[in-house]
Design a protein around this nucleic acid. Sequence first.
DNA 1: GATGAATGAGTGTTCATTCAT
DNA 2: GATGAATGAACACTCATTCAT
Lengths: 203, 203, 203, 203
Amino acid sequence: MSSTRDRILEIALDLFSQYGYSAVSIRDICGYVNIKESSLYYHFTNKQAILDEIINKFEANASLLMSRLEKSLSISFDYSDFNSFENVCVYFFEEYLMDDYCNKVMRLLIIEQFNNEETRKIYDEWMFDKPLRFFAKVFFVLSDMDVIKNNDSAALAVRFYSPIFMYASRWLLSGELTEERKRLFQECAYKHMNKLFIDIVRI
Amino acid sequence: MSSTRDRILEIALDLFSQYGYSAVSIRDICGYVNIKESSLYYHFTNKQAILDEIINKFEANASLLMSRLEKSLSISFDYSDFNSFENVCVYFFEEYLMDDYCNKVMRLLIIEQFNNEETRKIYDEWMFDKPLRFFAKVFFVLSDMDVIKNNDSAALAVRFYSPIFMYASRWLLSGELTEERKRLFQECAYKHMNKLFIDIVRI
Amino acid sequence: MSSTRDRILEIALDLFSQYGYSAVSIRDICGYVNIKESSLYYHFTNKQAILDEIINKFEANASLLMSRLEKSLSISFDYSDFNSFENVCVYFFEEYLMDDYCNKVMRLLIIEQFNNEETRKIYDEWMFDKPLRFFAKVFFVLSDMDVIKNNDSAALAVRFYSPIFMYASRWLLSGELTEERKRLFQECAYKHMNKLFIDIVRI
Amino acid sequence: MSSTRDRILEIALDLFSQYGYSAVSIRDICGYVNIKESSLYYHFTNKQAILDEIINKFEANASLLMSRLEKSLSISFDYSDFNSFENVCVYFFEEYLMDDYCNKVMRLLIIEQFNNEETRKIYDEWMFDKPLRFFAKVFFVLSDMDVIKNNDSAALAVRFYSPIFMYASRWLLSGELTEERKRLFQECAYKHMNKLFIDIVRI
DNA sequence: GATGAATGAGTGTTCATTCAT
DNA sequence: GATGAATGAACACTCATTCAT
C-alpha cells in the first residue's frame, strides 16, 4: 500500500529537510524512489506541488496533535498535580518536537522560511505562536485550578518554552538527529520542566 | 580600493542570507554588482570561495567583538551594580544580534548548517556555545562580586539567553529585518533583562 | 532502433578523429546530430562516456577481427603456398588498417594517447603489439610448414610490418582519407608484401 | 638571459607536446612561467603565434641539422667503410629523433597534423619525406662508392628507415620519454642498422 | 615589461518539465 | 502507472583576449 506517491513524498521530505528545497533536484528524488523523472509528473504537477503537499500534511497532522493536546486540558486535566503537567509536556516533546516526521518538516521550514513569506508564517505559527499559546493556556488552567501561584501565564509560557526551543534548535533541529542528541535534549528538557514546576507550584 | 571585490561579498551575503547559498546563482550576484559573470572569477576562484570568505570574515569580526566584550568584564566591570550588566547586554544585543552584518551571516548559517558539517559547527559555536559561555562568565563575575545571589552561572546563562535566542530567532532571524521587528525584539529583550536582574540581584 | 545514440557515437568519432577529443565540443557534436545539447545527456552521462564507448566498441571489434584472423591460421592455412599469406595480409589491410571505423579510432588514439595513459596502452596494443605478435605467428606457421626458410619470426614480423606501419601512418592515418591515398597505400603495401615473400620463400 | 619570452616558448612546447595545442590554455602556460596572462600578450600577439614560432624554430633547427648531415655526405664521407654510415645514423638518431627539443615538436606535430593542413605538411616533410630522401641519398652515395651492392636506393631507404620510424613512434614519441625507453630504442635501432649493413655491404 | 580588471563567447553539465507511447 | 526521448533555460566555470596603467 506504500504507493509510489507516498514514497515520493517521504523521500522528498528526507532530502528537502537535509539539503533544502532548491538544492534537491527531481533527479535526486527519483533516484531514491527508483522511478524515472518523467514518472514523477504523473503523481505531482511539479516540484512545488510536492513541497506544498508535505507542508499541508504537516499542518493537518500538527493541528490534530495540538487539538488532541488542547482537548486533554479540558478532559483529563481534572486532578491537580504535577502528573497532568508532566503528561502534557512529555506528549509535546515526544510526539511533536522529537517526532521524526515533524522534525523533518521543521528543518525544512527553517530553510524555506527565507524564500517564501507564506512558509515563514507557517514556520512562525508552529514554532512559536502555537506552542507559546498552548503553554500559556496550560499555565492559565494550572493557575485557575490553584496548582500554581497566580501569575502572568504568557510570561510563564515564554519562561517554560524558550529553553525548550533553544535545546530543540541546538540538538533536534541541527545536524543529524541521532539517538544521543535526542537523549541530550530529553535530559535538559525534563530537568528544566521539573525545576520550573517546583519554582511555580503552590507551596 | 578594490571595491568590486567588496561589492561582490556584500551582495553575495545579501542574497545568500535571503535565499540560501544554492538558490543564488553567480548570475544573480553579478546582476546586482553590475559586472559580467566572467569578471567575478577574477576576484574569486569559485562560488564556494565567496561563501568561505564571508564566513571567515564573520568569524574574525565576531571573535573581535567577543574578545572586546570579555575584556570589558575584567576592566570596566569594577563597579557592582546593574549598569555594568546592562551595558554588556546592550552591547551584545546591538552590536551582535541586531548588527546588520552579523544578522545576515546568521541567517546564512541557519540555512547552510544543513548542507555542511563545518558550517554547522560554526553555527553552533556562534549561536549557542559562545553566547552561553559568555553569559555564564558574566553571571560568575557578578556572583563573585556579590552583586547577585550565589548561583549556578551556567543555568543562569540558559535562563537569560534562551528567551533572547527565541526572540532573535523569531524577529531578527526570520522574515525581513524591519525597524518594527527590531523594536519588538528590543522591547522584549530589555524587559526580560530587567526582570531577570531583579529576580537574581542581592536584596 | 535507438538511432540517436548511434548517431551521436558516429559523429563524435568523426569529429574526435579529426580534431581530437578536447577540441571538439558537445555543441559541435549536437550540431551535426541535430539535437539539443541537453538531449545528448539523456544518452550519455558525460563527454568522456562517449569517448569510452567508442574505444570500447573498437576494442571489441578489433578483438573479434584479430581472433578471426588467428583462427584462419589454424584452419584454412593448410595448403603451403603464397595464397594463404596473401589472404591474411589482404584481410589485415582491408578490414583493419583501411577500414573506415578502425581508421577513425586509430587517428583518435594517436591524439589521445598523450593525454591518457590508459589510452596510450590501447594505442600501443592495437598499433604495435597485436599486429607484430600476429605476424610473428604467421611467419612461425609458414616456417613450420616449410613454406619459408627457417628464420627468426619476430624479426620477420618487424621487417614485414614496419613499412606497412609507415605507409599507414603516412597515408591512412594523416590528412584526409581519400581514395587516392588508399590506393597509394595499397600499391606500396602489396608491392612490399610480394617482394618480401619472394625474399623469404623456400626456393 | 633566459628571457620571459623564451621561457614561454619552452613551457608552451612542453605542454603542447604533452596535451595538444587546444587542450593547453594560456592560463596553464602562464601558471608555469609564473606571469599573469595579460603579460603573455606583451610577448606574443596570440596563442597561435606561440605555436607558429615553435614550429618555425623547429624547422630552422631541423633544416640546419639536415644540411649539416648532407654536407657530411660530400665532405667527410670519403673513406668507404661502415664507419661513415654508422656516424651518419648515430648523428640522425641522437641529434634528431632522440633530441629533447625535436622530440617534443614531433609529438606536437603528431597531434596538430589533424587540425591544420599546413602543420600536416610539415609533419609529413620532417617525419617521412626528408628522412627518406636523406637516406636514399646516403645509400646512393654508398652504392656510388661501391661500398654496397648496386641497388634501388629509395627502396633501401624505406627498408632502413621504416623500422626506425616504428621504433621511434613506439618508444620515443609515445608516453613519457624515459631513459629506459631511449635505451630500448637505441638497442633496436643500432641492431637494425648493423644487420642491414651486413646484408647490403659488398662482400 | 608586467599587471589588474574586465569581457564576450564558449565550456560541459544540470534543471524542471513535456509529451507521445 | 510508467517511461523513453526530448528540450529551453539556466548552471558554475574557462577561454583567449583587451586595455589602461
